[in-house]
Amino acid sequence: MYYLGVDVGSVSTNIVVMDNEMNVLDKLYLRTKGRPIKVIQEGLKRLRTKYDDKDISSVGTTGSGRAISGFLLGADVIKNEITAHAVAAVNTDKNVRTVIEIGGQDSKIILINNGIAIDFAMNTVCAAGTGSFLDRQAERLEIPIEDFGQYALRSKTPVRIAGRCAVFAESDMIHKQQLGYDVSDIICGLCHAMVRNYLNNVAKGKEIFPDILFQGGVAANVGIKKAFEKELGNELIVPKHYDVMGAVGAAMLAKRAISKKNTGTKFKGFMTAEAKIETRSFECSMCSNKCEVAALFDGENPIGCFGDKCGRWNTQEIKLNITMNKKFEKSFLHS
């Protein structure tokens, strides 16, 4: 019996296969590149060689693309990433009190007490402290992102970079570069700036107690980890599967849901990898909300719709309507 967890994030799509004891058997870390459907199909193709449809007893999805992946795979649980990360963290370390999660587009902090999430926060309008900013700076400096942290560790006298805003941080960095500072000093300064930004924005007003778990793609960066430890005065624990913790949490939630319901999984099978999935979006004109609705099609069969506030597009008859009624075809913005 295997359990599938899928986390479709802005930067990466992670898929894990777990066994009954909740050990990770397989994990895929794929780049989303703005095409969640393609990436999930790609992942399924890779897993198909190893697993059978009937081996999979449940599927859970999470991440910003959780709705689309949920429809595509036939998920048993579609959960937000905060809950998924908290569940995975508690199951990795029973004494966890704080989870620091920094992903591609967002960063969060989750406070846990006695195994229950008691508070959380997420970055709001600023992307300065997230993975994609680091990605971009690594690219600009022509350093592979994997080595970014190592560079920071080499620094003896980090320079100060303004970390309040990604745009200003970048100009600050360029300015310091032009003055001839060492690259590793600049990178170390950037790591410290990011950590400061995180603690002042996301973790503002929160009390951070150990054990602190550091999750998400950015946890691979030893420079950031070091900077956090310096600021907080505590050791950060990077769990073994730090990069796929969201998917792990989703798989755990799905396992739990299935064992409660006794109905069997809704998983649509690995054949989904071969399906010709396309989305068509249109502006609904049924009421004044004028929602932008995206309809997911498998060939000519509609699988699901999202983006509508009222949920009317997900009822069966309307689904039929989309295919039968050519009137709607005209209002599709693009197909």
Partner: peptide
């Protein structure tokens, strides 16, 4: 979710 779990005093609930 957070409120629901606090109430139940369990982490798992779907």
């Amino acid at each position: 979710d957070l409120l629901e779990r606090r109430q139940e005093n369990v982490l798992f609930r779907c």
